[in-house]
């Protein structure tokens, strides 16, 4: 194993531990990178689609299943176009029942990332973040 790969493997092992732990273990080595990894673990938001979109796609999949022939993906009339016609505003719906959200990080429903993220991430949004203080058991999202 080359030096770079060995270092990367050690870091990856530490990340594994970080991702498993509720508040972060006392991982040693790679100093600043561990701090950065912990920061990303704690702050990168997870996004959840609009509830209406999720339900409509579920319905569409159910129809496709019944037909046993899935319609061609990426058709010119995707679900969200119909949604926007019905509710054009930046409607945001929150799946606050997501008990699996495990740690203090953002969960953004119907979320969006600011286009100016490279500069300052202007906060002008319509999505809602639910911060969770602590990890609880459960799935990834």
């Amino acid at each position: 194993m080359t030096g770079a790969r060995e270092t990367a493997a050690q870091l990856d092992s530490a990340i594994d531990t970080l991702l498993r732990g509720p508040s972060g273990p006392s991982v040693v080595g790679e100093g600043g990178l561990i701090v950065t990894a912990r920061l990303l673990r704690d702050t990168l938001p997870r996004f959840h689609p609009r509830f209406t979109f999720e339900e409509l796609l579920a319905s569409r999949l159910a129809v496709a299943r019944r037909l046993q022939v899935a319609p061609t993906p990426m058709e010119p009339t995707p679900i969200r176009q119909g949604l926007e016609a019905a509710a054009p505003a930046a409607a945001v719906e929150i799946d606050s029942s997501d008990a699996a959200e495990r740690r203090r990080r953002g969960l953004v429903a119907g979320g969006a990332i600011a286009s100016g993220v490279s500069r300052a991430l202007p906060i002008a949004g319509a999505a809602l973040v639910v911060w969770r203080r602590s990890r609880s058991s459960g799935g990834i999202l």
């Binding site: 920061l39 702050t43 969006a112 286009s115 490279s118 002008a124 949004g125």
Partner: peptide
């Protein structure tokens, strides 16, 4: 397309501001 990220914390405001800034910088 102008996108948005609105971070709103439910916890105490001081921690919220700090966390929000931290999240923005990390995301950026």
């Amino acid at each position: 397309i102008e996108l948005a990220l609105h971070l709103r914390a439910q916890d105490d405001p001081a921690a919220t501001a700090e966390t929000r800034l931290e999240a923005q910088r990390a995301l950026a």
